[in-house]
Write a protein that binds this DNA or RNA. Structure first.
Lengths: 120, 120
DNA sequence: CTGAATCCCTGCCGATACTG
DNA sequence: CAGTATCGGCAGGGATTCAG
C-alpha cells in the first residue's frame, strides 16, 4: 500500500520524496534511524536467526560492550523492531525477539548486502 | 551472482554473515558507509532524477552548506556512486552524475522507503 | 544477570572565511 | 562557480562503575 500513487515509478519521483532537507518523518530516515549506529545491523542479523537473551547476544558479539548493547536494544525496541520479555525467577533473564515489523527488515538488509557485495 | 551459495535462504544464514564485529569489508557496512551522513540520501535521490551541477544541487537543497555538499560529493565519488565532470570555460561548472553502481542504489533506497512507510 | 549512570574522547556537521 | 581551511558544539560510543 505504500506506493499506490506511484506504481512502478519508484522513489525518486514519488511526490512525498520532495523534501528539501532531512526530516524525521521521511520513510527513508525512519529506517536509517532504526538501523543507526555501530553494531545495530549485526544485532538485527543475530535476532533474525531467532530469539536471544541479553547474554546470548553478548556472547555472539563479544566485542560489544554492555552499555552499547543495552543502548541498541532500547533503540530497536523503541523503533518497534523488537520486543523484550522479562522472565521471572533466578537468574533474571530477558529475551528479545523481532516483531513482525522487525522481521521485515530482512529484505532491507538483503538489499544493503546485495549492493555492497557487488563492489567486492 | 552475490548469493548463489545461499539460494533463497537470504542473508542471516549466509556463511559470510558470520562476522562478530563491525567490519568495513562486510557488504552491509559498505553500503551503509556509502550512504552515511546527513543529506546523503537526499543527494542520491536528487541525482537519480538526472545529472546536476554543484549549484543545481545547492538550489535543490538550500539548507545544505557548501562544505557539507562538497564533503558528500567527495564521499559518494570515492564510494563509486557518482562521477564528476569538470566543464572548462567560464563560469566553471562541474556536473555530477550517478555511475551504474550509483543507479543501483535506487532499489536500496526503495527498500528503505518501503520499510519506513509501513510505520506511518 | 540485566541493565542504568557517569566520564571521556573522537568524529560529524554547521558557520564562516578564503582561493582558483 | 566550485570548492578548501579552520573552528566550535554536540552526539556517538567505549570503559568503568553501580543498582535491581
Amino acid at each position: 500500500m505504500a506506493h499506490q500513487t506511484v506504481g512502478q515509478a519508484g522513489l525518486p519521483d514519488d511526490p512525498r520524496a520532495a523534501v528539501t532537507e532531512p526530516s524525521p518523518s521521511c520513510p527513508v530516515e525512519i529506517t536509517l534511524a532504526a538501523l543507526r549506529g555501530r553494531w545495530t545491523t549485526l544485532l538485527v542479523r543475530e535476532l533474525l536467526r531467532g530469539e536471544r537473551t541479553f547474554s546470548e547476544l553478548r556472547d555472539a558479539l563479544p566485542a560489544l560492550s554492555d552499555k552499547v548493547l543495552s543502548d541498541r536494544l532500547a533503540q530497536l525496541t523503541e523503533a518497534g523492531v523488537l520486543d523484550r520479555e522479562r522472565r521471572s525467577g533466578w537468574p533474571p533473564r530477558t529475551c528479545y525477539r523481532l516483531t513482525p515489523q522487525g522481521r521485515r527488515l530482512g529484505p532491507v538488509l538483503q538489499a544493503l548486502w546485495d549492493w555492497g557485495a557487488e563492489r567486492l
